[in-house]
Computed example of a mutant assay.
Amino acid sequence: MGGIRNLFKSNLFILLFALLLDLVIFGVSFVFLGKVEFGVEVFIIPIICLLFGPYAALGCAISQIIIGVIFDLN
């Protein structure tokens, strides 16, 4: 478990993790909605990840997916 914590001390790894979360958001929105939109979350997730860590970025990504599915299905 200490190896994962050491990885998240690197800013480069944190940015790569945030970009991976962005790709997950794009993939989920394409599967459920059939379209990919570049919104504010593209810029917010890497900043949140650098400031508050990976758990905050993961929470932001999950909330963006939920909000996107709820508001775009109507």
Rank of each mutant, 00 (worst) to 15 (best):
F17M: 05
I47R: 07
C60M: 13
L15R: 04
D72L: 13
N74R: 15
S29D: 06
S63R: 08
G34C: 11
I62L: 07
G39W: 01
Q64C: 14
S63V: 09
L15V: 11
G53Y: 02
F71M: 13
Y55R: 07
D72S: 14
M1F: 15
R5W: 03
L20S: 07
D72Q: 14
A61T: 06
P46E: 00
L58M: 10
I25H: 02
D72H: 14
L19V: 14
G59S: 07
L73S: 14
L73W: 06
A18T: 00
L23G: 15
S10E: 07
I62K: 06
F13M: 05
F38V: 12
G27I: 03
C49Q: 01
G39R: 08
V31A: 13
A56C: 00
G53L: 08
L73Y: 10
F38K: 09
F26W: 12
I67H: 13
A56K: 04
I4M: 15
I70S: 01
F71S: 11
G53D: 02
V69P: 02
I66S: 03
L7E: 05
L21F: 03
I47V: 07
I14D: 06
V42I: 13
E37M: 13
I70K: 07
F8P: 05
L7C: 11
N6K: 10
F38S: 07
I67A: 15
L50H: 00
N11E: 09
F13I: 06
M1W: 13
I25V: 13
I14T: 12
A57I: 01
G2Y: 15
G59Y: 01
F32N: 06
S63T: 07
L20C: 02
V36S: 12
F71C: 11
L16Q: 07
C60Y: 10
G59I: 00
V31I: 14
L15Q: 08
G59D: 03
R5N: 10
C60H: 08
A57G: 13
F38D: 06
G2M: 15
L16K: 10
V24H: 03
I44D: 01
F52S: 04
S29K: 11
L73Q: 11
N6C: 11
I70L: 08
